[in-house]
Design a protein around this nucleic acid. Structure first.
Lengths: 242, 242
DNA sequence: CGTTAAGTTGAAGCGTCTCAAGATTGGTGG
DNA sequence: CCACCAATCTTGAGACGCTTCAACTTAACG
C-alpha cells in the first residue's frame, strides 16, 4: 500500500516558505514565489520509511523537500546499497532532463516528510518563462554534481575514519545552513547502516570507528544522536593535512 | 612553462565537426553550428601530461574535448588521487554555473589534445539566445551527474574486481559510441595508476586483478592495450546478479 | 642493445568484513 | 511507573581483501 499521499489542506505558500532561500524558487522575492506557486503541482506527505521512487521507475515528477530528511541511494545487483546523499529541507530531488527515462537511483523518507511536487509539464513551463529559474536549476545541478564528486573522492581514497569525519562535517555544515545550532546535541534520523552505506563500510566497522571518535573526545554519534565535542578536531580529521 | 596554447590555423569548423553529435552543439543542424561557431572562443592544443586546470583555480572557461583523452581528478590532502572520469572526444569539461568560484577538480591531458574553448561571457550569450543549447547543457550536466552516481555506487560497494569490470564496461561502451570497434584490441592511454585511482585500489592490486581477468580469458588489459576476449563475461562480471 | 619507466609478482602486515554474543535503546502493555 | 520486547548498536575473534615494500620482468625508445 502506498502511503505517499496528497497533503491535507491547508497547503503552505511559496511566498512564506521558510526554506525557499535554499530551494529552486529562491530567485526573486515573495511576489515571484507567489506567482510561481500556481505551477507547483501539489504537496505530498509520506511517513518515515516510505519509498518515494525507485531506480528504474519512470517517475515524471521532481520534488523540493519541504520538511524532513530523505535518503537517496542506489542498490547494486549483489544487494549492497550505496547512499548517494542525505537530502535536507530545501533540497531538490528527482530532477532529470528527460523524464521519460527511468530514474537512476531511489529515494526513501528517513523521517515523515512533506514534498512540493513539480511535474514534467510544469517544470517546462516554469523554465520557459523564467530565465532566473533556469539559471537556478543549472546551479542546483552543478552543486549536486560537485557534492557527488567530493563523495566519490573520499569514498574512493580515504580510510574509513576520515570518510566518517567528512560525512559528519558535510552534514553539520548543511544543518548549520538551515539555522540549527551545531554545537548542541542534534537528533539525526539515520541509523548505523544508513551512515555505513553512505561511506562504504559495514555498520559493524562504523561502530568501531564511532567508538574511537568518542574515546578521542571528538564526537559522540550513537543512537540517532550526534553530540559534538570538538568540531575543530573533527574538521582537522576530515580535511586536515597532518 | 605552460604549453597549453592556441591551436595553429586552420581551426576546425563546428559545421563539419565529427564529434558534434555527442557535444554541446548537437542541437540543430550544420547551419546552427556554423552560426554558433562565432561564440566558440578559441581552439587550444596541449601535449600529453599537460594540466588543463587545477582544483582551486578560478578558470573562466569550459571546453568541448575535440580530440584526445582527458583525466578529471581530485587530490586529497593525503596526496591520494581519485580519478573522477575519463573524458573522450565530444565531452564537455570544466563547466560551472558560477565561473567566479574556484574549480572543484583538476584535469590533465592523457594524450595530446585539442579543445574547443568557451569563455564565461560567450556561454552566457549562447544560452541567452538559444533555448536548445540551454536544454542540451542541462542534459549534459544531468548525464555527468548520473555517471558520477554510478561510479560512487560501485567504488563504495563493489569488490575491486567488479569495479575494474564496471570501469572497463563503461569505457568500452563510450568508445563504441564513438565508432570504435571494441571487439578488436584498443589502445588505451591510461596506465595502471590512472585506472587504479579511478576505481579506488592500488596499482599493485590492480595488477593482480588484471592478471586474474587475463587468466580467466575475459580481457587482457596491459601496457596501454585492451584486448577484449569475452565481453559478455566482462559484462556479467560487472553487472551480473550471479 | 642498453637504459629507463612501467608493470608484475611474492611475502608480510593492516584494515575491514563476517559471524556471533552481549548491551543499550525506545516502545508497549501490564 | 516499571518490566519486557524487538530493534539497533557494540564488542570480540577470526578470516579475508587490499596495501606495502621490494625484487624482478617487460615494454618502449633512442
Amino acid at each position: 500500500m502506498n502511503r505517499f499521499t496528497l497533503k491535507p489542506e491547508p497547503h503552505t505558500h511559496c511566498s512564506e516558505c521558510p526554506v525557499r532561500r535554499l530551494a529552486w524558487f529562491e530567485p526573486g522575492g515573495n511576489e515571484a514565489a507567489g506567482r510561481r506557486e500556481r505551477l507547483r503541482s501539489a504537496q505530498y506527505v509520506a511517513p518515515a520509511g516510505q519509498i518515494l521512487f525507485q531506480e528504474g521507475d519512470v517517475h515524471r515528477r521532481a520534488y523540493t523537500l519541504f520538511e524532513g530528511w530523505v535518503i537517496r541511494y542506489k542498490l547494486l545487483k549483489n544487494g549492497q546499497r550505496q547512499v548517494l546523499s542525505v537530502a535536507l529541507p530545501g533540497d531538490f530531488i528527482g530532477y532529470r532532463s528527460d523524464f521519460s527515462a527511468p530514474m537512476d537511483y531511489s529515494a526513501v523518507a528517513a523521517t515523515p516528510v512533506t514534498l512540493c511536487a513539480f511535474n514534467e509539464r510544469h517544470i517546462e513551463e516554469l523554465m520557459r518563462g523564467d530565465p532566473d529559474l533556469t539559471r537556478k536549476l543549472i546551479q542546483i545541478q552543478c552543486h549536486q554534481a560537485q557534492e557527488c564528486r567530493l563523495r566519490l573522492s573520499y569514498v574512493g581514497q580515504a580510510p574509513a575514519i576520515q570518510r566518517f569525519a567528512m560525512f559528519l562535517c558535510e552534514l553539520i555544515s548543511r544543518l548549520a545552513q538551515r539555522g540549527i545550532d551545531t554545537r548542541q546535541p542534534i537528533e539525526i534520523p539515520l541509523n548505523r547502516e544508513d551512515i555505513a552505506d553512505a561511506i562504504g563500510v559495514t555498520s559493524v566497522h562504523l561502530s568501531r570507528i564511532s567508538a574511537d571518535l568518542r574515546k578521542r573526545g571528538i564526537v559522540d554519534c550513537r543512537y540517532n544522536r550526534l553530540v559534538p565535542a570538538d568540531l575543530e578536531a573533527l574538521h582537522r580529521l576530515a580535511y586536515g593535512d597532518e
